[in-house]
Design a protein around this nucleic acid. Sequence first.
DNA 1: AGAAATATACAGACCTGTCTACCTGTAGGA
DNA 2: TCCTACAGGTAGACAGGTCTGTATATTTCT
Lengths: 182, 182
Amino acid sequence: MQETVSAKDRILTTALRLFYRDGIRATGIDKIIAESGVAKMSFYRHFPSKNDLIRAFLEARHEIWMGQFRAAVERRFAEEGFAAIARALSEWFGEPDFRGCAFINTVAETGSEFPQTVQHKCELELYVTELAKRLSLPAPAQVAAKAMIVMEGAIVRAQMGLTDGLEEMTMQLLTDLTRCGN
Amino acid sequence: MQETVSAKDRILTTALRLFYRDGIRATGIDKIIAESGVAKMSFYRHFPSKNDLIRAFLEARHEIWMGQFRAAVERRFAEEGFAAIARALSEWFGEPDFRGCAFINTVAETGSEFPQTVQHKCELELYVTELAKRLSLPAPAQVAAKAMIVMEGAIVRAQMGLTDGLEEMTMQLLTDLTRCGN
DNA sequence: AGAAATATACAGACCTGTCTACCTGTAGGA
DNA sequence: TCCTACAGGTAGACAGGTCTGTATATTTCT
């Protein structure tokens, strides 16, 4: 029985941190191996290639991020509606190690090599659609698609450090979507 | 007198193409040298390091992109107002080699190493502010900041291939900003 | 003569991925 | 209960490629 975390989990945890912080191309296998305290052969036993680790990273990141985002939105959605989305984003932007959206960054680095990136955005849009339905909005899919545009834009602005008035403007843009005339 | 384009210009032209198409980290000096038909020493005479070329790339890209974007917007702004922005973006998204915004991609790859990226976004926002003023909108700076959020979001959505209904939704989001209640 | 470009080799670092050799805990059969 | 087989982990060397940047020697243009 292993008292410590498995090698595979330690690798994935390290990848979650380094891939997000420094980017995928900039993070070498050697660095991940060193920081997770794992032998090289153990790494290649669990992940036959770096791309396999990248895929695992994207899937894990998706689960973790969606969980945190959902939780942050649900905390206020009942009272604030779509404004809760802006607040959840703003909390995320304020985290000290915030560096933009891992999936946007991966697409920027690698192009369309990893479909998990687009998949993540589709599932996020599905969740926003569900939120729109819970508000009984007339065209939930259209509202969600527009909200996604606003959300992506807010993430990029935050990533570039252009955060002046960002939370309030994002909130206005999102709540405007819930008024009549979508 | 040189009958052909100078080595420096050939390097920059090649960098504009390769850095945008494949990304900055993924594009090696050797590749730029080979494709621009220049000797390595000529390269390092004009650009002491790769970072110098990256800076020159960002500045050139800014000038070129702004020129094209301005032209595309002005073509319709008098008749269509802010919808002209959505149309200009959509034209860009439709180009066969579109791969997102070079400045967003550079930030995604390199973080905050190159201030030219944020500078570009600030100058673009200034132009949008000017457009808002030309429409005699009450709060042009606020409208422009919101428009920037929408524009960045549209760019990211297009980059990820999520273009279904994108032009129309972007147009609605942007024109809604020009109505009363900011 | 001198500036600018060319071709090419090279250094040193880093990258992914493979190979060998060894260690350790555990499950199963005799 | 003991022995054995094996899965998983460790350590580190190594191959072959790519990367940035430098050095050398030659050519071309003015």
